[in-house]
Amino acid sequence: MGDFLAQYGFLIVTMVQAGLLGLSLYFPLQAGQLSLASPGFYAVGGYVAAILLTNPAFAGLRESLGNGLFPLTWLAAALICGLLGLVVGIPALRLRGIYLALATIAFVEILRVVSLNLGVTGGAIGIFGIPQAFGFQDRWQYIWLFGPLLILTLLFARQLERSRVGRAFRAIREDELAADAMGVPPTRYKVLAFVIGAVLAGIVGAMSAPFLNTWNAKQGTFDASIAILAFVLIGGSRNIWGPVVGGALLTAVPELLRFLADWRLVINGLVLVVASLYLPQGIVGALERLRRTRPPRRPETAALPGVKGGTP
């Protein structure tokens, strides 16, 4: 078991991390919003944690709190990303479709350029030597952070779907004008979904900074936006398990096929193309459709007295 975790522990944690980032995009999609801003909030959360854990200005806080500083970084990242999501979401979410996607991509690029030119973020070099959370010795131990966060996020998403807010999200996604006519304020609920996704991405970033031991502007890029969108689309955007399955699959395939060198990227691209063509509802959506269309089992008739094999 120890050898398995030593070899594949980093990959397993990365798969869970990818699922969480997919879920951060899933929440705005629940309200019908194609937002690609998750990498930006992920980068901000990581920078918050990296600065608090390495900057000399916070040396006294680190000494006084010890390991208690790590939960504080998660809370700080959640608050900052939530406020930033509110500030960005109120004007941006008045846009729809491809225009919203372009606006959120611009937001990610603005954050990337700003981080490249700030001294506190380490500029283009970034921040190095981020201490390991809770003194972890091996990377696989981060499953004790990302795993519970994934479980809590899935439980929260399930309860949200069953709540009045979840029903409002679905109404807006299906027909925004009809939802507005029925008294559901679209802007309020779209901003709420956007902020929930921002908070989750920020917390994941704050946990990921110690996990990666370094943080720089490459963490929040346009490429990352497309990758996270692929997690959701390949896994399925109408089920909470879709982003988790898509993130795990698209993270694992290139690593497990590393022995094929550059051909592994070709295979990863083929997976994306095939899934896009033949699984429009994603992997989880296809499995659900298969389960619903399976013919019901024929009930067995009770055997009559004196007759073998059931029906005479």
Rank of each mutant, 00 (worst) to 15 (best):
G19M: 04
G19A: 08
L20H: 00
L20F: 02
L20P: 00
L21D: 03
L23M: 08
L23A: 00
S24L: 01
Y26F: 15
P28F: 04
A31M: 08
A31G: 06
G32A: 08
Q33N: 06
L36Y: 01
L36E: 01
L36Q: 01
L36F: 06
S38E: 12
S38G: 14
P39R: 00
P39V: 07
G40M: 02
F41D: 02
F41E: 01
F41S: 02
G46W: 00
A49P: 02
A49E: 03
A50H: 08
I51A: 00
I51S: 02
L52C: 05
L52V: 07
L53H: 01
T54H: 02
N55A: 12
N55I: 12
P56G: 10
P56C: 10
P56L: 15
A57D: 15
A57E: 13
A57T: 15
A57Q: 15
A57I: 15
A59D: 13
A59G: 12
A59L: 06
G60Y: 14
R62H: 07
E63H: 11
E63G: 11
S64W: 15
S64F: 13
S64R: 12
G66C: 12
G66V: 05
G66Q: 05
N67M: 09
G68V: 07
G68S: 11
G68F: 12
G68M: 13
G68W: 14
F70I: 10
F70C: 04
P71F: 10
P71N: 15
L72V: 14
T73K: 03
T73S: 13
W74L: 15
W74C: 15
A76Q: 09
A77D: 08
A78I: 05
A78Q: 05
I80L: 11
I80R: 11
C81F: 04
C81A: 11
G82I: 03
G82K: 09
L84D: 09
L84F: 12
G85R: 01
G85H: 08
G85D: 01
V87H: 14
V87I: 10
V88C: 15
V88R: 02
P91F: 08
P91L: 11
P91V: 11
P91T: 10
A92H: 09
A92T: 14
L93A: 08
L95H: 06
R96I: 14
I98S: 13
Y99V: 09
L100M: 11
A101I: 08
A101V: 05
A101E: 06
A101H: 12
A103F: 05
T104P: 04
T104L: 07
I105H: 07
A106I: 13
A106T: 15
F107L: 14
E109D: 13
I110E: 09
I110R: 10
L111C: 05
L111I: 13
L111R: 03
L111H: 06
L111M: 15
R112P: 03
